[in-house]
Simulated assay, not measured.
Amino acid sequence: MLILQVCADQGIAPGGTKGASVHLRHVAGALGNRGHRVVTVAKREPVYVNPHPAPVRSLDRGLLAAVREFGLPNLVYERYSLGHTAALEFAHGHDLPFVLEVNSPLTVEALTQRHAPVGFAEHAAEERLFREADSVVVVSRPLADYVERLRGRSDGIVVVPNGVDPAAFPITAAHTGGSTLAFLGHPKPWHGVSRLADVVAAVASRHPAVSIVVIGGGLGVGELMHRARATGVDDRITVTGPLGENGVATILFDSAVGVAPYPPNDFFYFSPLKVVEYMMAGLPVVASAVGDVAATVGDGGFVVDPADDDALASAVSLLLHDPNLRRRLGGIGRRRALAEFTWDRVASQIEQAASALVGGSR
């Protein structure tokens, strides 16, 4: 099957390090590994931190330019981008099945998190895409409920949580006595990363070597560092900046606990890549009980009340105190990730949804 993967989001660079770029790359790669030909058509020019596994062509040149070069696809598969309906219209115009991948409710996100203006056109485009897509792939149950309300029906909605590449983590965390807490990603307001300064301050008396490594960077680090200076723990924080997969795996191998300290959120629609990557690396997870996070972590760590900083610190302290417990929970998480959260599993679920639309051809 020839699949045209479309991404009209200017903020998502094929080959980049942010979570959306990781997702774009691995969906393309996993579908390719299952025998499909994938061509990615993107608004943003590619970068080469992590090479994209499919040919990348510019969306500015139009979808027809890609078709002239590679042939008419069997499927148009678009990562939902705010206000973009051209891929849907292209698919309809050429009598092709259209699958929409929805990673977040972009109109809600733009208003509540990015404080960006969203008008009637963007809302209308979102509802149209949800209603007219032949199938909608979403990353979480809360997001499925959101799509269903606008789509007006549940048929064609498939929940496919994010995955991780086992090959990127050939060895698992050593658990040899270190006291480093790992946060993977470029901090955003909804990550709650500044809370980690208080966690470190709370457990430092019992674990004098405790530290944090932020595997990423960006403007969001400033809030964490501000809080760290206020609590006197700024010397315990390391920020790596963007890293490729090998660099990420190396740091997780040397860490003790993977943390995801999300604040309270009544509509947590994410499927956090960081959580499944911690699990694949053999790290026990300490995370907030929001959205589908508890269902993802299972018995691979501790999930606590998102409003309870003391519970967060207590869970971290317990794990730092007991390397055998870290090893046991990390092993449970690793096995769970291998069974349920690989990119091949993601691709197989997408393939299943697509095959029903294109008659199972490849």
Rank of each mutant, 00 (worst) to 15 (best):
Gly62Ser: 07
Ser58Cys: 05
Asn50Lys: 08
Val49Pro: 00
Arg68Tyr: 05
Arg61Cys: 04
Ala66Pro: 11
Gly62Asp: 03
Asn50Cys: 12
Arg68Ile: 06
Arg57Asn: 00
Arg79Gly: 01
Ala65Cys: 04
Ser58Lys: 09
Leu64Met: 14
Arg68Trp: 04
Glu45Met: 04
Arg68Pro: 00
Val76Cys: 03
Leu64Thr: 11
Arg68Gly: 00
Val49Ser: 03
Leu64Ile: 06
Arg79Tyr: 04
Val47Asp: 05
Leu72Phe: 10
Pro73Thr: 02
Glu69Ile: 04
Val76Ile: 11
Val49Gln: 09
Glu69Lys: 13
Pro73Ser: 02
Leu72Tyr: 13
Pro46Trp: 15
Arg68Met: 05
Arg79Met: 02
Pro46Ile: 11
Leu75Met: 13
Leu63Ser: 03
Val67Leu: 03
Ala54Ile: 07
Arg68Lys: 12
Ser58His: 10
Asn74Met: 06
Ala65Val: 07
Pro55Tyr: 11
Ala66Val: 13
Pro55Cys: 09
Arg57Lys: 05
His52Val: 09
Leu72Asn: 08
Pro53Ala: 04
Leu72Asp: 00
Gly71Val: 12
Gly71Ile: 13
Glu45Lys: 03
Val67His: 03
Pro53Ile: 03
Glu78Arg: 07
Asn74His: 15
Arg79Ser: 03
Leu72Gly: 01
Gly71Ser: 11
Pro51Lys: 02
Arg68Thr: 09
Arg57Trp: 11
Asn50His: 14
Arg57Pro: 00
Pro73Cys: 05
His52Asn: 05
Val47Ile: 15
Gly71Ala: 07
Leu72His: 10
Glu78Leu: 08
Leu75Tyr: 14
Ala54Arg: 05
Arg79Thr: 02
Asn74Ser: 12
Ala66Lys: 08
Gly62Cys: 02
Val67Pro: 03
Glu78Tyr: 12
Pro55Ile: 11
Val56Ser: 01
Tyr77Arg: 09
Leu64Phe: 05
Val56Leu: 03
Pro55Ser: 09
Tyr48Arg: 12
Ala65Leu: 00
Pro55Thr: 09
Gly62Tyr: 04
Leu64Lys: 06
Ala66Ile: 09
Asn50Gly: 00
Leu75Ser: 10
Leu64Val: 11
Arg61Thr: 11
Gly71Tyr: 14
Arg57Phe: 08
Pro53Arg: 00
Tyr77Cys: 02
Leu72Lys: 15
Leu75Ala: 04
His52Gly: 02
Ala66Asp: 09
Gly62Met: 10
Glu78Cys: 07
Glu69Arg: 13
Pro73Tyr: 07
Val49Lys: 06
His52Ser: 04
Leu63Cys: 00
Asp60Leu: 13
Val67Ser: 01
Pro53Gln: 01
Arg79Leu: 02
Asn74Asp: 15
Pro51Ile: 07
Leu63Ala: 00
Tyr77Phe: 15
Gly71His: 11
Val56Trp: 06
Glu78Phe: 12
Arg68Asp: 10
His52Pro: 06
Ala65Pro: 00
Arg57His: 11
His52Met: 07
Arg68Ala: 15
Glu69Pro: 02
Glu69Met: 02
Pro51Thr: 05
Pro51Asp: 07
Glu69Val: 11
Leu63Ile: 04
Pro55Gly: 05
Tyr48His: 15
Val47Thr: 15
Val47Glu: 14
Glu69Gln: 14
Phe70Arg: 06
Pro53Val: 06
Glu78Trp: 10
Ala66Trp: 13
Asp60Cys: 07
Phe70Cys: 01
Tyr77Gln: 01
Leu75Glu: 11
Val47Cys: 12
Pro73Trp: 08
Pro55Gln: 07
Val49His: 10
Gly62Pro: 03
